[in-house]
Computed example of a mutant assay.
Amino acid sequence: MTIYRYALVILLAGVFVFPFIVMLTTAFKVSDEIFMAPPELLPRTWTLDHFVGALTQIPFFRFLLNTVVIAGLSVLGTVLVSPLVAYSLSKLRWKGRNLLFIMVLATMMLPPQVTLIPIYMMWNKVGATGTILPLIVPAFLGTPFFIFLIRQFLLSVPDELIEAAKVDGASEFRIYWSIVLPIARPALITSAVFQFVWAWTDFLYPLIYLNDEESYTLSIGLYSFLGEHGVQWGPLMASCVLFTLPAFLIFLVFQRYFIGGIATGALK
């Protein structure tokens, strides 16, 4: 049975990994080999021309900088605000706490398409459309999913530890900063990785709010390779490889904390 289970896992992994392998090998193929019949997975002639085209045909580094700024500020807002809200909903006792937590959970049930137009009208009224503010400010207001995730993790922190710190004269913020946050590091890193990947790969919201090419992100920039006379598959695949690499490296570095944070949240 163990052999069959491993075989099934390998088969499923192959199904999910195969598109990425095709993307990677296509980026190194010469143009004549991309649609060669019958198709071949590995290129006969390896080339870096498509990567050169990806870096020169669009302002790649400008788009990269914009994406890094938006993703970085979104992560900063997430790790600053969401843990504060989660701490108040898990360790502070105040009237209406449970009701507010239910309201936070209720907002997670709303599809983003439902609130897309009202939120756009709100940003348009304050003159923020065309800027990166609609893409980063929501992270500084707290994200329901991350509040829920971190709260579930903080429930595992013993109340006796917090009470002992209060007896020693520690303030509420000192307890939060010096005791709770270090313990909650797996949940914080998990939230940061989630937020980074979401902000890095987001296409819809930058498309809606950014109307100046100077402020485009990489996800929108990749669309430049889709012209009315066809698709430049080689440079597009090379750009996708470069676009995917940072998110892959981030997950690879922090996967230990990422998996631990998810597992703890699920157990709670």
Rank of each mutant, 00 (worst) to 15 (best):
Pro134Ala: 00
Thr129Asp: 05
Lys125Val: 02
Gly127Leu: 02
Gly169Ile: 12
Pro111Ser: 09
Ile150Leu: 06
Pro118Thr: 02
Ile175Phe: 00
Met109Phe: 10
Leu161Cys: 07
Asp159Thr: 13
Glu160Met: 09
Gln152Glu: 08
Phe140Pro: 01
Met122Gly: 00
Thr107Ser: 15
Leu161Tyr: 04
Ala164Lys: 05
Pro112Leu: 05
Pro138Tyr: 01
Ala106Gly: 11
Gly130Lys: 11
Met109Ala: 13
Met108Val: 11
Gln113Glu: 15
Val126Met: 12
Lys166Gly: 11
Met122Ser: 08
Gly127Ala: 01
Gln152Lys: 12
Glu163Ser: 14
Glu172Ile: 11
Leu135Gln: 05
Leu149Phe: 00
Thr129Asn: 13
Leu141His: 06
Thr131Val: 03
Asn124Val: 00
Arg151Ala: 08
Glu163Lys: 13
Met121Thr: 14
Glu160Ile: 06
Asp168Trp: 04
Lys125Cys: 00
Thr115Ala: 06
Thr107Leu: 04
Leu110Ser: 03
Phe145Gln: 12
Val167Trp: 01
Thr115Gly: 02
Gln113Ala: 13
Ala106Ile: 09
Glu160His: 10
Thr107Pro: 09
Gly169His: 08
Pro134Lys: 00
Met109Pro: 03
Phe146Lys: 10
Ile119Leu: 15
Gly127Trp: 00
Ser171Asn: 10
Thr143Arg: 13
Pro111Thr: 10
Arg151His: 07
Leu155Thr: 15
Pro111Ala: 07
Glu172Cys: 07
Lys125Leu: 09
Val114Asn: 06
Pro158His: 09
Pro134Val: 00
Phe173Ser: 10
Asp168Arg: 08
Ile147Trp: 02
Val157Asp: 11
Glu160Gln: 13
Ser156Cys: 00
Asn124Phe: 00
Leu154Met: 15
Ala106Arg: 02
Thr131Ala: 04
Lys125Trp: 02
Lys166Thr: 08
Phe146Ile: 12
Trp123Gln: 05
Pro134Leu: 01
Val157Phe: 15
Leu135Lys: 07
Ala165Gln: 13
Ala164Met: 08
Thr131Leu: 04
Thr143Gly: 10
Val114Lys: 08
Lys166His: 12
Phe148Ala: 12
Pro138Cys: 07
Ile175Ala: 14
Met109Tyr: 03
Gln113Ile: 14
Pro144Leu: 04
Pro118Lys: 05
Pro112Gly: 11
Lys125Gln: 12
Pro158Lys: 12
Phe140Cys: 10
Phe148Ser: 08
Gly130Asp: 08
Gln152Val: 03
Gly127Thr: 02
Met122Trp: 06
Gly142Met: 05
Leu133Thr: 11
Gly142Gln: 06
Ala106Met: 12
Val137Trp: 01
Ser156Asn: 13
Pro144Val: 10
Glu163Gln: 14
Asp159Glu: 15
Phe153Gln: 06
Pro138His: 00
Asp159Lys: 15
Ile147Gln: 08
Pro111Phe: 02
Leu155Ala: 09
Ala128Ile: 00
Ile147Leu: 04
Pro138Thr: 03
Arg174His: 12
Gln152Pro: 01
Ala139Phe: 12
Ala106Pro: 02
Arg151Val: 01
Val167Lys: 03
Val137Gly: 04
Val114Arg: 06
Glu172Tyr: 01
Ile150Lys: 08
Arg174Ile: 11
Val126His: 03
Gly142Thr: 08
Ser171Met: 09
Ile147Pro: 07
